[in-house]
Design a protein around this nucleic acid. Structure first.
Length: 497
RNA sequence: CGGGGCGUGGCCUAGUUGGUAAGGCGCAUGGUUUGGGACCAUGAGAUCCUGAGUUCGAGUCUCAGCGCCCCGACCA
């Protein structure tokens, strides 16, 4: 990759064409977002990475509250018996649960500590892989009347799934997420809620993350364990693979029967509640990285960016730099007044170049350079992360120029991603053609009969899965791509993360 | 759990036929610097993944174990 003569070899980023996985890891490292932890498959999210996650949290949390939900918090540990109450649910998660069996350590005769065998728990606990069961247990006590419905709860939490293979941000054993859990009086209401929250995710992905997605329903085999219906937004990464970026589930009455969540309706009749759940996770950070980064590092869409503008003053040793700093402050307050998130990099132990590269790698959308040369013309230098050229802009209209640049960058990122999605989505009718083309990645809109047998065979032969059955069926379905039976709908097939 | 690759200061690596660890980056101090990855000087920093074996002697050879990365199966 890099050679010994390059003093900056450990700062280099692999190119996407060379090795996509390595490139992905390099971007994360270069942007200083996260690193591997001492715990297998878990990651340490570093401050810069976390600041982006905090933006995701804040924006989504506002939206979740606007739509009538309330935040709450439930225990990390779930009694093992809870998990097994819903048959499909336990089957889906049993294989990836970390289990707490003891509550005490003791000194070992050989030194160090061992698990105290006398401290074995009566009932073992599972570290939550998701919180349906423990929340539904509460629901069963909280809900007794139709007047208690809808019950609209959201939780920000960590969860743990002991996956066989992990991948930083995309599939870590421990991850952070938001999980909404709601209960409704009718199936229609629950369906409406599920659709509403998927739409929240879609708008967030597209408008904030500048990441176009395909919204649709999962095939039965890809459903959440215990759900009647699962809906998803699917994004396309730069290598043409799909990434499930958010899900919303109609849980039906399976869990409410398992947890006895009943209410008396207006006719005093006992009814089981209709439940939903929906969530997005730190996986969105992976989506961000693989959607927008280039070979120079991360690019954060302005709407999401914790820092939208970084100002780098150019100072000259032994000269009077006060005018530069005066203008830095001026521009900072101009930005603040216009709601632009700005950071001043006045560290003097880094050279200009070092600072420029750092913010470029971190993907800050706009850089402003101010030095004596700019001030002579009553201007500053504006560098957009998505454009190669630098432009001189007048100080008088600086806030407008920056705002415009941010709007442009947001649009550029979205358009590029949309262009990629469009140009790499293929509507095909021929299975052999599909088998050939899938090797190069992309989304494939194929007619599908709806049988799991065909879905499975396609997966075996091509490694492509049904990402979703899109709500928008742009092209009418013909006959199943595999079995040639009449198909009711087209599904998006793709290889996925 | 299968297949492949790799474990040497914080990071990236070098290390010859086995002879007692070297360089770059980073870090610290002082000075000079700042318009795209600065320079000079001085300095700190190593259970060479672990264990056993072969040997007068192991970073190097042998065996076992552990860990990490990539590719599969599993999954948000």
């Amino acid at each position: 990759m890099s050679n010994n003569k390059n003093p900056h070899k450990d700062k280099a980023i692999t190119t996407r064409d060379e090795d996509y996985s390595q490139w992905y890891l390099d971007v994360i490292r270069a942007a200083d977002m996260a690193e591997n932890s001492p715990v297998r498959g878990a990651m340490i999210i570093k401050p810069y990475g976390f600041s982006i996650w905090e933006r995701i949290q804040r924006i989504l949390d506002d939206k979740i509250k606007e739509t009538g939900h309330q935040n709450a918090y439930f225990p990390l540990l779930i009694p093992k018996s809870f998990l097994s109450r819903e048959a499909d649910h336990v089957e889906g998660f049993a294989k990836e649960c970390a289990v707490v069996t003891h509550h005490r350590l003791k000194a070992s005769p050989e030194g160090g500590v061992i698990v105290d065998p006398d401290a074995k728990l009566e009932e073992e606990y599972v570290i939550r892989p998701t919180s349906e069961t423990i929340i539904h247990d509460s629901f069963s006590r909280w809900i007794s009347s139709y007047r208690d419905l809808p019950m609209l709860i959201n939780q920000w939490a960590n969860v743990m799934r002991w996956e066989m293979r992990t991948r930083i941000f995309l599939r870590t054993s421990e991850f952070l997420w938001q999980e909404g859990h709601t209960a409704h009086a009718t199936q229609d209401e629950a369906a409406e809620e599920t659709a509403k929250m998927l739409e929240v995710y879609r708008v967030f992905a597209e408008e904030v993350m500048a990441m176009p997605v395909i919204a649709g329903e999962k095939s039965p085999s890809e459903r959440f364990a215990g759900a009647n219906k699962t809906f998803t937004i699917e994004a396309m990464m730069q290598d043409g693979k799909a990434l499930q970026s958010g899900t919303s589930h109609e849980l039906g009455q399976g869990f409410s029967k398992a947890f006895n969540i009943t209410f008396l309706d207006q006719e005093s009749k006992e009814q089981y509640a209709w439940l939903t759940s929906w969530g997005v996770s730190t996986r969105l950070m992976g989506a961000l990285i693989m959607s927008h980064s280039d070979d120079r590092g991360l690019i954060v869409p302005p709407a999401l960016a914790p820092t939208q503008v970084v100002i780098i003053p150019i100072i000259k040793e032994g000269k009077d730099n006060s005018e530069v700093f005066t203008h830095v402050d001026l521009i900072k307050s101009e930005c603040a007044q216009n709601g632009i998130r700005v950071h001043i990099d006045d560290r003097d132990h880094f050279t200009f170049g070092e600072k420029s590269y750092e913010w470029e790698k971190k993907g800050v959308p706009v850089r402003i350079e101010i030095g004596p040369r700019d001030l002579e013309n009553h201007s500053v230098t504006l560098v957009s992360r998505t454009a190669d050229d630098k432009q001189q802009v007048s100080i008088d209209s600086i806030a407008d120029s920056i705002s415009q640049a941010l709007v442009d960058i947001q649009a550029t990122l979205y358009n590029n991603a949309q262009e990629r999605l469009t140009s790499r989505t293929f509507v095909l009718e021929n299975y052999n053609e599909f088998k050939e083309k899938i090797e190069a990645g992309g989304f494939f809109s194929l007619s599908w009969c709806g049988e799991a047998k065909c879905e499975d065979q396609i997966k075996d032969e091509t490694k492509a899965t049904i990402r979703c059955i899109p709500f928008e069926q742009n092209t009418p379905a013909t006959n199943c791509i595999l079995c040639d039976q009449p198909a009711k709908q087209r599904a998006i097939f793709a290889r996925a993360y």
